[in-house]
Design a protein around this nucleic acid. Sequence first.
RNA 1: CGGAGUGUAGCGCAGUCUGGUAGCGCACCUGGUUUGGGACCAGGGGGUCGAAGGUUCGAGUCCUUUCACUCCGACCA
Length: 509
Amino acid sequence: MRYSRLLLPTTKETPNDASLASHIYLIRAGLIQSVGGSGLYNFLPLGKKILDKVRAVVKEELDKAGCQEVSLSFVTPSALWDESGRLEKYGKELLRFKDRKDNDFILGPTHEEMMVNLVRQTVKSYKQLPLNLYQINLKFRDEIRPRFGLMRGREFLMKDGYSFHSSTEDMLREFALMEETYKKIFTRLGLEFRVVEADSGAIGGSGSKEFMVLADSGEDTIVVCNDCEYGANIEAATCQPKVYDTHTACKTVIKKALYDEGKSLCVGFVLPQDAELQETKACNSVDANDLIECDTQQSPSIVVIEETLGAAVDPNAFDAEEINYADIVAVQEGDTCAMCGGALRYTKGIEAGHIFQLGTRYSEPMGTHFLDENGKTQPMVMGTYGIGVSRLLAAIIEQNHDDKGCIWTKESAPFALQIIISNIKDDAQVALGEKLYEAMLSLGVDVLLDDRKDRFGAKMSDYELLGVPHAVVIGKNLSEGKVEFVTRKGMSSIEVDADGILDFLRDTL
RNA sequence: CGGAGUGUAGCGCAGUCUGGUAGCGCACCUGGUUUGGGACCAGGGGGUCGAAGGUUCGAGUCCUUUCACUCCGACCA
């Protein structure tokens, strides 16, 4: 590709609403363009190209693992969501609308219902199982607060996969296979990540693991052990139980728990004075959709006592209809690891992938059955597996950038090599640049030739901003028969004889 | 939804208090000089001033209503 023909609108100024490196550089490097704000973005040619490369890595590894790609309708009938009971649970994040006949539709935020619907119409026998189907398509979530560019857009590209099994054992086998496959994907993309235990959220199900790309700018707090492999989202993290007695000072946190059809209950959470309530755990402990602040100090109808308090608290002290025990306390830094006894600490991560053991959460209510060897009707056992593909672009930049711009990893780079002709009016420089460009193309190297009538400084700045892994700078040293080979990471450069540059590139790239 | 703020050229902003020719920087176009770190000179194009209503001889500016977006806190790949 010739730079002079490329639509790549780089800018010197940072957009005023961008605070994250990935957001700033995606826009400044001319990869994406904001569409009237509010979490909607256009992908410009090179942004699209990078997205396609990341997508290709995801697809290759999944196909190798035996998954099959499909493409589900983006617009989905609300009726399906009624069947699974998620229409209410998902709440306002669903973008709902009507067609001209007044039928209700939503834009899919994730496609469990659609995939289940597809499979229940086509799969009837245990002989057709197991099955792992996925798609890499647009999703829409009407986020309360979109921000950070591609990190939390409202429209985004997600890979969502669903597996169907005749037994829980087989689903667990596939779950493990997907964990391995995901590790391969993130490793190929050059990311530093950690697999952690997670809460299952609105999708439901039992076991779930998140793939966290480690970055200080990550939105999730994850708890990791200094001494072993243990890692968990703060929402699901556990530690060795602490010991309390009747002298332990306790506090009660009052919250309003929200349920389907507008129902709500006042709940009191009892925990040690110096502990912190973990809202997700608390929410799960009462099977609520959400917890909100309770305005009045009314007496709670349910009391949940932190389980490690045990006998340290007298349950008769509360005037409530129901008293339960559950893990509702947030793990603190310095707590003891339940696996090995080491010290736990916090770190930040970007949730780039999430795998769930769904069980029969969707197949049961939606009537997705098959006939087993004995001709008996059984609900299929399911797993579901997601990767935020467009978010991965942001995650790659968060982990790979400097104060000049992006530093793309090998598998994600928009080009393998950039050839920079310093002065377009110098015939010798142009001649070598063109020759090298043609040679690289014929070798099958994806190369960008900067043939613009710009000054050296402008070209170098654009090179650093875009972040192609390597460049050849053909400049004034050509009069002494030398060119420069530059590596974007660290901006180190070495002088190479102009005569030998072609061989050098053949050996190096 | 709570709190704070902003809407004026593609982007970033001034002008609004005190009503009177629509401005600046970047980007863009033309010509010329320049070519190792975003250069310079000269000329040029580009605007429903977020929207609606009102006050006024006259509204970007004052009044009312409304919409959108951004930032800080509770959802999620």
